[in-house]
């Protein structure tokens, strides 16, 4: 069993057809403790509000106790940056055991948000991210408009992680048709699972 916190991205209203929703349902059916909240004002998000909710949900999962399993964070796009920003700010009450960042957006593309100032190659960001992420896993695609330099160059290289690149997955969004994703469900159960499996 595991305790899983899912953090959606920008302009996302948790569509029932997207992989995040389906993953939450599948994991709950399997008996995992899953938190999948709607983060406020997704069109014009306040990172302070998003972090407040992230911290509150994490505290709730932590309160269940470690007997409920590993503490896992799965963030998509801006959701991944929300985690990194929270790690840098040191607001998270506890570190995750494992973290999966799916298509995290390049901070340079979000200059109007505080996360746009994140310098991923700075020692502070690297140390903070690794210390709160536990085992960090990174997934991206070769055709993601939110990662013009590619997931490996933008995130993998600075954070010291080899990213799993899924060909043609674009931004893993609902509009990209990224619905059922067996690989991520398997990954929750087993960190060595094949994340490319649809």
């Amino acid at each position: 069993m595991a305790r899983v916190l899912l953090n959606h991205g920008l302009r996302n209203r948790r569509p029932a057809t997207q992989w995040l929703y389906r993953t939450a349902v599948a994991l709950r059916r399997l008996g995992h403790q899953v938190s999948y909240p709607q983060f406020p004002n997704p069109d014009e998000p306040s990172i302070a509000q998003w972090q407040e909710l992230l911290v509150a949900e994490l505290e709730l999962l932590e309160a269940i106790g470690s007997q409920a399993g590993e503490l896992i964070f799965i963030g998509h796009s801006l959701g991944g940056l929300n985690f990194i920003q929270a790690a840098v700010d040191g607001v998270l009450p506890v570190a995750f055991d494992r973290t999966l960042l799916v298509a995290p957006a390049d901070p340079d593309l979000l200059p109007d948000l505080p996360v746009g100032a994140l310098k991923l190659d700075s020692p502070e960001v690297i140390a903070a991210t690794n210390s709160y992420a536990g085992r960090l896993t990174l997934v991206g695609s070769d055709l993601d408009a939110w990662q013009p330099r590619g997931v490996q160059a933008t995130f993998g290289d600075p954070l010291g992680v080899t990213a799993t690149v899924i060909q043609g997955a674009k931004h893993f969004s609902d509009a990209d048709g990224w619905g059922p994703w067996q690989g991520v469900i398997d990954w929750v159960l087993d960190p060595a699972a094949d994340l490319t499996k649809r």
Partner: peptide, 16 residues
Amino acid sequence: NIDQDIDGDGIVNGKD
């Protein structure tokens, strides 16, 4: 590698 305050000075790594 998993310590949120590596030098134990009370300042988290991200702000230290």
